[in-house]
Design a protein around this nucleic acid. Structure first.
Length: 151
DNA sequence: TAGGCCATCTGGTCCT
DNA sequence: AGGACCAGATGGCCTA
C-alpha cells in the first residue's frame, strides 16, 4: 500500500485566506482540509472501483459471446480481446464471402453442409469445441501466438 | 517459488 | 470544480 500524500491535494485557498487570524484556526482549518481531501480521495476510489467493475462486467459479457473452444479456464482480459478481434475478423470474412455468391442457398450449402437442417432454426447457445468441429476450426480459430504485440 | 492475472489505490490529465 | 479516464505501483491469489 502506498503512503498517503494527500496533504497537498486540497487547494482550499479561500479557507486558508479566511483562517489566518489565529494559530488555532489555522490548525483547525488545515485539519478540515485534510479531512476533505481524504473524503474526496475515498469518493474517487469508490468511483474508480465502480468504473472497473463496469469494465469487468463488460468483459464478462464479451466472454459469453466469444468462442472458447471448450476451455474450462476462463479467458484472461487480454485473451478475450484478442479472441473478440479474431472472431469479428472471421465473421467479416464469412460475410464478404457470402456477398460473392449469387444466392443465399448456394452460400449456405457451401458453408453449412455439415449442420443438420434443424440447426438453422436457432443459434446454439453452446459453442462447438474445436476438437469436435473441424469446420469451426477451419473458419475460425484463435491461437494466442498469432497475436504478437507489434512494436 | 516465480510468474501471471487481477483488484485496488493513487496522482495526473482531460473534459464538461 | 468535479467526474471520467488512464497508467503506474502494490499486494494477494493461484498455478506450474
Amino acid at each position: 500500500m502506498k503512503t498517503c500524500k494527500s496533504s497537498h491535494l486540497d487547494s482550499g485557498v479561500e479557507a486558508e485566506a479566511q483562517c489566518r487570524s489565529g494559530t488555532g484556526c489555522v490548525v483547525k482549518c488545515s485539519s478540515e482540509r485534510m479531512e476533505n481531501a481524504a473524503k474526496r480521495r475515498l469518493a474517487a476510489n469508490a468511483r474508480e472501483r465502480r468504473r472497473m467493475q463496469g469494465l469487468n462486467t463488460a468483459f464478462d459479457r464479451l466472454r459469453k459471446v466469444v468462442p472458447q473452444w471448450g476451455q474450462d479456464k476462463k479467458l484472461s482480459k487480454y485473451e478475450t480481446l484478442q479472441m473478440a478481434l479474431s472472431y469479428i475478423m472471421a465473421l467479416t470474412r464469412i460475410l464478404a464471402e457470402a456477398e460473392r455468391y449469387s444466392s443465399e442457398r448456394e452460400w449456405i450449402s457451401l458453408h453449412c453442409e455439415h449442420f443438420h437442417a434443424d440447426s438453422y432454426q436457432h443459434y446454439p447457445a453452446q459453442k462447438p469445441s474445436a476438437d469436435s468441429d473441424p469446420y469451426s476450426q477451419r473458419v475460425f480459430s484463435y491461437h494466442p501466438e498469432h497475436f504478437q504485440i507489434a512494436n
